[in-house]
Write a protein that binds this DNA or RNA. Sequence first.
DNA 1: ATAATCCAGAGTAAAAAGGTTGGAATTTAA
DNA 2: TTAAATTCCAACCTTTTTACTCTGGATTAT
Lengths: 153, 153
Amino acid sequence: MKLSTRGRYGLKAMVDLAVNYGGGTMAINALAAQQGISDAYLEQLIAALRKAELVISVRGAQGGYKLSRPPQDINVGDVLRALEGSTAMLDCVGDVRGDCSNMCACSARPLWLKLQNRIDEVLSATTLHDMAEDYKTQLRHLQASSAGTPAKS
Amino acid sequence: MKLSTRGRYGLKAMVDLAVNYGGGTMAINALAAQQGISDAYLEQLIAALRKAELVISVRGAQGGYKLSRPPQDINVGDVLRALEGSTAMLDCVGDVRGDCSNMCACSARPLWLKLQNRIDEVLSATTLHDMAEDYKTQLRHLQASSAGTPAKS
DNA sequence: ATAATCCAGAGTAAAAAGGTTGGAATTTAA
DNA sequence: TTAAATTCCAACCTTTTTACTCTGGATTAT
């Protein structure tokens, strides 16, 4: 019941791209530096997002990545599915249902279905636009609250 | 983003105990057989449940396990926490918050908090009593629908 | 050209998952 | 009293997954 680093790093990179949306491409090292991970690793994650057609890459010098469509048209479920393969907690409740021998006589399945529905509700209701906006105001508040105090060396 | 077999097997065993509630103890091999897993493995899972005081064990011949309290007083969150350690998808939103260096400037944290809340809502709102009742009617329907057809050899 | 960038695949160390093994302790029944 | 049934406990083992790193290109703006 844990989310892997793929999902965490990858989603945050997507939010960074969303914040930057409309302003050209971002290089992988800029994105990676912001999270303190290696370029090579983030590259792998971005590759998955590119294959899912959520980001577009521009090769060559001054190249980089950008979102393939407006942030409000990409939801978190899309992103996590691309990165993790699925948003399902169990195979028996996923999009591609793994078969379970006693699916129709499982005492837990109704619960798992309900849980998965709630999860997918949240994931599909939240877009990169939402997250980017939240993030921007969050940063503004941080700046405002540190404005009165002297800067640290 | 996967639930492990500990959670799956362990919870189903708890539902079995809930169905049996009030009718004495159940031996580990009876519980294990119902799910097609080894006694030894289920024993491990039950040990965690016993330490969390969700089940009571009776040692010796004719011994076994039973719920420590009525099924309506045990919710799924209690069970999963005992089996998996936590119901948190990420350390930074769990009961025992693992620290994350940039928690207050994380673009994803608001989402994770919301998601975790929805999950915990479902888990705490569902009791073993609910699951046992659902399961019993489910079995009744299965029986009813196969009543007209001849039994397989 | 060349420098910056993406692309693809293999390799690897550590952790987690998913068990198994063997035996000690306790209780009941013959 | 002894054998059988049962839980309890600790350690061990194997496989898979995670979380990366490394290497060696291929592509393209300048």
